[in-house]
């Protein structure tokens, strides 16, 4: 046999290709800054910061100083330390809720789009009912009734991402159903489920990838929004929304630091996520 004369070479992974220094400057800058924020959050416990959850009644609403660069809040906790530690909370909640939404939504959409018929009708109706509820009100109601826990918060946000991703994947699946490579996959002996999950679904992920950071940004805003009105994440856990709320009524007295710094952190994160979302799609499409 002629085989095995040449070894089959290895190929760089998607991650390696993404990190290769040939992307446009804008992509690298935005992803770089975002990774910096994530890194800051991951390393927070190792950094020389004050304890983010230790109150000090004698040290309330102190203006920014060398000791407390971002000042202290109404409980006398260090705002810098809390702002950085809040990255962990907000990003973890946002990412896990979006990931859960995709893991459930994308396969539902692919199944619904590929098989069509009654299955499609059922899945589409259910997702439409999901989307019918006003999100903030529904979130408030569920958190009030089922308990104000982080797990519930993630579930609520995931609940709203499921229809977003199932509809998106369904719409991309419909034209793929008749594609030559899908027919070829059938000829190659794939079962219908295997056609959907090995051949159709991976080809629907480009729009999913470009939507992902946007969903994270939206989820982060929702988390902060719900926490601002006292649902979701409660003090003392560091979280931007609750921090803004804690400092909000002191703004009029000129004590701006307790709200402004977490607000800026939230703003920058959402902004970067939006930018990356715009650029991410093109990066994945090129794949080279």
């Amino acid at each position: 046999m002629l085989a095995g004369e040449q070894a089959i070479p290895e190929r760089p992974s998607l991650l390696q290709r993404m990190m290769r220094a040939n992307g446009p400057m804008r992509v690298r800058l935005n992803i770089g800054l975002l990774l910096l924020i994530v890194l800051l959050g991951l390393l927070a416990p190792l950094l020389p910061l004050h304890d983010p959850v230790r109150p000090n009644p004698l040290n309330r609403f102190k203006a920014p100083s060398l000791e407390h660069p971002f000042g202290t809040d109404g409980n006398g906790m260090d705002v810098l330390s809390r702002t950085i530690h809040a990255i962990r909370t907000d990003f973890a909640l946002a990412i896990s809720s979006v990931a859960l939404g995709i893991v459930v939504g994308a396969p539902l959409g692919a199944l619904s789009g590929y098989f069509g018929g009654r299955l499609d009708s059922v899945i589409t109706r259910i997702t439409e009912v999901f989307q019918g509820f006003p999100q903030i009100l529904f979130g408030m109601a569920v958190l009030a009734a089922a308990g104000n826990t982080m797990v519930n918060l993630v579930l609520i946000l995931a609940f709203y991402n499921v229809p977003v991703y199932s509809k998106m994947v369904r719409s991309v699946t419909l034209p793929l159903r008749e594609a030559d490579f899908v027919q070829a996959a059938r000829v190659a002996g794939n079962s219908p489920l295997s056609v959907v999950f090995r051949h159709v679904l991976p080809n629907t992920l480009v729009p999913v990838f470009s939507q992902l950071p946007l969903s994270c940004a939206y989820a982060a805003q929702m988390i902060a929004g719900l926490s601002f009105i006292g649902l979701g994440v409660a003090i003392p856990t560091p979280e931007w929304g609750s921090m803004i709320q804690l400092g909000a009524n002191q703004l009029v007295f000129g004590k701006w630091w307790a709200s402004i710094f977490p607000g800026l952190a939230l703003f920058i994160s959402v902004w970067l996520l939006n930018n990356v979302s715009d650029l991410f799609g093109s990066l994945v499409v090129r794949r080279a």
Binding site: R11, D180, G189
Partner: peptide
């Protein structure tokens, strides 16, 4: 079967090896 259009008859997310392994799964 071999399809008329060779470009569209391969899954763009799979390498040639993956496509052949896919057919060899049977």
């Amino acid at each position: 079967m071999v399809f008329q259009n060779p470009v569209s008859s391969f899954n763009p997310m799979m390498t040639i090896e993956e496509a052949l392994l896919d057919a060899l799964r049977q």
